[in-house]
């Protein structure tokens, strides 16, 4: 197992190099830059600043300079924040993780339950309604659902706060603070879960349907096992195997930040910061953050692979 882990990790190196080359190249080609967007400075000053930030370097020099930094854990310097990119990511990403984590746990739980039921009762009324609702919610744009939720629950009924992460000016401490944050999380988490759960439900439903039709399930039923045991012990466990791969892929999305939803609910996450960086052409922040997510995606892949080996003996045999 250890050798497999090491081998798999070594395999990621060329991928990472490839990704970094592509990213530096793409961001190099994007028109516009931060310095030129300041209309009040002279051409000389603009050139001087670009020189200082290394924006004038040819692409291969940019690449070498940047990778040297990355190897030391330095993702570059955010021009708009005047701070290292890692500081900026650290400042905002955990707020995004909080929301994304809650959404992930909730949507998986709901999706598994709903997916299993609609698989077991395939073509039933329940299945039909769920299928319809899932598609209906999925096809609503997040800004619409978000604004609708704010209008109904925050402005009209005033049950939940409109946005943000804490009550401004309240200065809560300890548990009161935790409760305050939870209260602010509810609406964005509900909206994101609603958008997320649809796809997952379909996934579990299909996977479950595949398993239920297999011979060993019939055998289990023939043995006289209780239906509950058959479904949850025998079928669900097997149906979950492909889901584990999915879990690996979810790692980067934990850190990616939901741009639109975060902005609607004024959640202080990384999504909005990244969007601003793109608009302002904050070169190293765009590059550094995209690379960070790419890195997590690759790691997520490795984790998915390895987990697959752990849970599925058939893969281990090969």
């Amino acid at each position: 197992m250890t050798t497999q882990v090491i081998r798999r990790l070594l395999q990621t190196i060329p991928t990472l190099i490839g990704v970094s080359i592509v990213l530096v190249l793409i961001f190099h080609l994007i028109p516009g830059n931060f310095v030129d967007s300041n209309p009040t400075i002279s051409k000389e000053r603009a050139t001087e600043l670009k020189e200082m930030y290394g924006l004038n370097d040819p692409v291969h020099i940019k690449y070498i300079k940047w990778t040297q930094g990355v190897l030391k854990g330095d993702l570059g310097y955010s021009i708009s924040h005047k701070q290292p990119v890692t500081t900026i990511i650290d400042r905002y990403v955990w707020n995004s993780v909080l929301i994304a984590g809650a959404v992930m746990v909730l949507s998986w739980i709901i999706a598994i339950i709903v997916g299993v039921f609609s698989a077991v009762r395939q073509h039933s009324f329940f299945d039909g309604v769920i299928t319809f609702l899932v598609f209906a919610v999925m096809s609503l744009p997040s800004f619409f659902l978000g604004l609708l939720a704010i209008k109904l629950f925050a402005v009209d009924m005033r049950i939940f706060p409109i946005g943000g992460m804490t009550t401004t000016g309240a200065n809560y401490e300890g548990w009161a603070h935790v409760w305050d944050v939870l209260e602010h999380m509810i609406l964005p988490v509900i909206v994101l879960t609603a958008l997320n759960v649809g796809g997952l439900t379909r996934y579990f439903r299909t996977s479950m349907l595949d398993v239920i039709k297999q011979d060993f399930i019939r055998t289990a039923r023939a043995k006289g096992l209780k239906e509950r045991t058959v479904i949850f012990k025998h079928a669900l466990r097997n149906a979950m195997i492909p889901a584990i791969t999915l879990l690996g892929f979810e790692i980067p999305s934990l850190f990616a930040g939901a741009m639109i939803t975060e902005s609607i609910f004024n959640w202080p996450g990384i999504g909005g910061v990244f969007l601003d960086a793109i608009t302002a052409r904050d070169y190293f922040l765009m590059l550094g953050y995209t690379f960070f997510i790419a890195f997590l995606t690759i790691i997520g892949n490795v984790v998915a692979d390895l987990m697959y080996r752990v849970v599925d003996p058939r893969v281990r045999m090969k």
């Binding site: 800004f143 978000g146 604004l147 704010i150 925050a154 402005v155 005033r158 706060p161 409109i162 946005g163 943000g164 009550t167 401004t168 000016g169 902005s263 609607i264 609910f265 004024n266 202080p268």
Partner: peptide
């Protein structure tokens, strides 16, 4: 004595004034 800037966005800054959060 106390002045606070609350970070708001275009989507909800109007509603925040309306509900008195700002």
């Amino acid at each position: 004595p106390n002045l606070i800037y609350k970070a708001t966005t275009e989507e909800t800054n109007l509603q925040l004034v309306q509900t008195g959060e700002t």
